[in-house]
Design a binder for these strands. Structure first.
Lengths: 223, 223
DNA sequence: CCAAAAGTGTTAGTCGTACACCCATGT
DNA sequence: ACATGGGTGTACGACTAACACTTTTGG
């Protein structure tokens, strides 16, 4: 390889995350507002340029930490974005990541070195984003639905376990369908990805719900 | 983005293909022998560095053309390989591609500008390859099996149509299982990805077999 | 008419889907 | 005791898997 060959000496990698949450039945994605050019004051997905000495996943986690202050959330790769002019300064290839979090358990930074704001946007009310981030987000939404039963995406959401009604509402919100309670329970149990704990969650005036948790060896990755 | 920031000013993209064929029931992959350092005289997968002005898929097809002389075969993305030291001259991220071809219908070059040999290797008899190509190949073999029914991977194999026994042998070779003839036919027809032609293929002394072909709108991509 | 390989239909089991009643709790 | 929401079982239809005989051809 000729290291300085101009045909390929001006390239870089972006790592871009689509971080979702379910807020009262509405699927939302986390956007940040850019402080600097290019795309100053545009909303954007959380991400940035990979460093030379980082694995992709580590660069992604660093960017998430820098831009919204959150440590170590589980995200997984879902696609590549290679339009030649998607970034104007350099030839940048973007690697897309997906994660799902419980927004009420996190403290999202509003203002950082490179961001002036952050907020959760319903996925059907997304403004024009920086770069090709609208394209990345749309693909992420499709992949999110396909991955629910195949990967560990939901593992961030309930670190302390969940009840059947809770997790069913998550599935229903993301997939935009309704499931029969009995069949949903049977199906999820039959997938061999969750297990019962001996705890229950009590509500005011209701029958307590059993708490389940995801098995450790839960799901296989896909990409 | 600070274009010359040393944290990320020395990166590049590899496009690497795993091109499979089925040879008398044995799944084989195409390897080339490298003419130059690094890894001079090692066997390797077909691939190389992406140019700045190319889409990934176009760079992949250019590399396939340069290294084995084949035009325009169908390949699809299947994964990313990001080990920090996978290439020593630069930080290189590899994008893996998969394709399946009929080796008897192609004229594979043995000697090119950068290659001194090429050959088909059974996937359980692979030598030590250049770079991280053994890792890439192993992952490709897994993905190949999962994708058979989901994508257009088989479309290269039979541009002029195929008989049920032919395509069944391909499935059986790749998946390493046996199917019941009746059930295989029913299943493939039920997938709505193939259609009957009015042609038959005659064999010596046997009942002629109907020729089917893949529908144009056949399958959806996955990655 | 024989050998070789292609074509076809039926049955049993499994999985997914639809659906209604009982149970535990707090007030 | 009642209101609220959680837990459970059964019956039907759809899909998957097992299995053997008939058809067409060339020699």
């Amino acid at each position: 390889m000729e290291v300085n060959n101009p045909k390929y000496n001006n390239q870089g990698i972006h790592v871009i995350s689509t971080i979702f949450t379910i807020d009262k039945g509405v699927t939302k994605v986390l956007l940040i507002k850019r402080k600097n050019n290019p795309y100053k004051d545009y909303w954007a997905l959380v991400g940035g340029a990979l460093y030379n000495d980082e694995l992709l996943i580590d660069g992604m986690k660093r960017e998430i930490k820098e831009k919204i202050g959150i440590d170590n959330i589980y995200v997984e790769q879902f696609g590549l974005f290679d339009k030649i002019d998607r970034s104007l300064l350099k030839r940048m290839i973007a690697v897309g990541y997906i994660g799902i979090v419980d927004k009420d358990k996190l403290e999202i930074l509003k203002d950082t070195l490179k961001t002036s704001d952050s907020d959760w946007y319903p996925i059907d009310m997304i403004p024009t984003l920086a770069y090709d981030h609208n394209i990345i987000l749309n693909e992420a939404i499709d992949v999110l639905k396909k991955r629910l039963n195949e990967t560990d995406l939901l593992s961030n959401l309930y670190p302390n376990g969940f009840t059947m009604p809770e997790i069913q509402k998550i599935y229903e919100s993301i997939l935009d369908v309704k499931f029969d309670r009995r069949n949903f329970r049977k199906k999820l149990l039959s997938l061999d990805i969750i297990e019962e704990t001996n705890k229950v969650e009590k509500f005011d005036g209701n029958k307590p719900a059993k708490i389940y948790k995801f098995k450790d060896n839960k799901k296989k990755n896909v990409l």
